[in-house]
């Protein structure tokens, strides 16, 4: 339970801190560029995830780690 309380507190602090950040809707010209999308190329990410899932002991983080293949 302790862990969840910390998580909740961190979320609240982040949220309140975040309220002073950001831009107005008419200031989104640069953020709107496709190069600024967080996952710039989902297809590259999918291929990379498959490679690193097969070769390293860590998966996920950006999205779900999941299972998906018996790859060696």
């Amino acid at each position: 339970m302790h862990k969840y309380k910390i998580l909740l507190m961190v979320s609240i602090v982040l949220l309140s801190g975040c309220s002073s950040l950001g831009v107005q809707p008419w200031e989104r010209d640069l953020l709107a560029k496709k190069e600024m999308a967080l996952t710039g190329s989902p297809i590259d990410s999918a291929l990379d995830d498959h490679i690193y899932f097969s070769k390293e002991a860590t998966s996920g983080g950006r999205s779900f780690g999941g299972g998906g293949c018996g790859c060696n």
Partner: peptide, 30 residues
């Protein structure tokens, strides 16, 4: 067989006109 259960919490924040950040915490149990 195996089963995997994932939970993912995420925060995305626009910092300014030129910057955006994202933080995720994920828990995965197999």
């Amino acid at each position: 067989n195996k089963t995997t259960f994932d939970v993912l919490f995420g925060v995305t924040q626009v910092i300014n006109r030129k910057m955006i950040v994202q933080f995720n915490y994920s828990l995965s149990t197999s």
